[in-house]
Write a protein that binds this DNA or RNA. Structure first.
Lengths: 144, 144
DNA sequence: TTCTTTGCAAATTGTTTGCATGCTC
DNA sequence: GAGCATGCAAACAATTTGCAAAGAA
């Protein structure tokens, strides 16, 4: 699930259509290098190609279907504005630190969380999305 | 920081006022036994005392100042509607599992997270709010 | 009396929806 | 050609803001 044609195939197999808009949204999300809000994606697509037919509702709807297909995931810890990320199954799992002061995010790997994931599953039967985990706090600069 | 008068003092010391509304909001939050959205708090206060002068904006503003004072914390992982909790420093730290299927929440203690907290601080200088951590996923019933 | 807080209503922001048209399969 | 997808504009929901009046120190 890592290049355009795979996505195209996945869409077709589930009876959906592979459209220009979806393709551009995915590209913006994948090559944008990180997390993007719906609005950022909208602006990014529009900027790269002002003639591209794209609207906010399309972005929301596309993100929604891609989420259902598990190709895109919505990050937690961004109060007020949903933030999305391309779900790359090959990449190492990383987690997000979201600063409540400046809103900036830092990524880091926390291998120890894998153990917690299985502990949760074992004790509660809950299947946690550790992958989407966002941890809020204060970054070094904002701690003053 | 566990009874009414402490809150009153904390407010006074920071040059703020101790008002009926703030008192009732806190009571609703503390004795409500768990997490509450702004709207739930509003309804709860209004229900307990229909004559109480309270408005939604007041709830939001009060929660905001209480958050700044670290007396109340906003939980992550509740997309769309912010959820708040009384920050009880004496209580054991618990964490939240939020089901993306039914929206239900489960609380559990995860002592292992304390180690992760210090790891984050050590490696990134970030001060994480592990306390507010919300983990999304699918609960046992919704996994079908 | 001074300065904070409140209520009300209006404004914002982020997101969703209905419907006619366009495009993919 | 059939049915999913799109754009537009309107609908929504949650939260914020301006301003005059009320309340705490």
């Amino acid at each position: 699930m890592s290049c355009e044609s795979d996505v195209e195939q996945a869409l077709r197999e589930s009876g959906r259509r592979f459209t220009m808009q979806r393709s551009k949204i995915l590209t913006a999300l994948r090559h944008g290098g990180g997390h993007r809000t719906a609005d950022e994606i909208f602006e990014q697509v529009r900027e790269e190609d002002p003639h591209a037919g794209i609207s906010r509702s399309t972005v929301y709807r596309a993100l929604d279907t891609l989420k259902q297909m598990r190709l895109v995931s919505e990050l937690d810890s961004h109060p007020g504005t949903a933030t999305f990320e391309w779900t790359d199954r090959e990449a190492p799992r990383h987690h997000h630190l979201v600063c409540r002061g400046c809103g900036g995010t830092v990524e880091l790997e926390l291998p120890a969380l894998a153990a917690i994931e299985s502990e949760i599953e074992r004790t509660t039967g809950f299947d946690p999305d550790i992958r989407h985990l966002g941890i809020t706090g204060l970054c070094e600069q904002c701690r003053d």
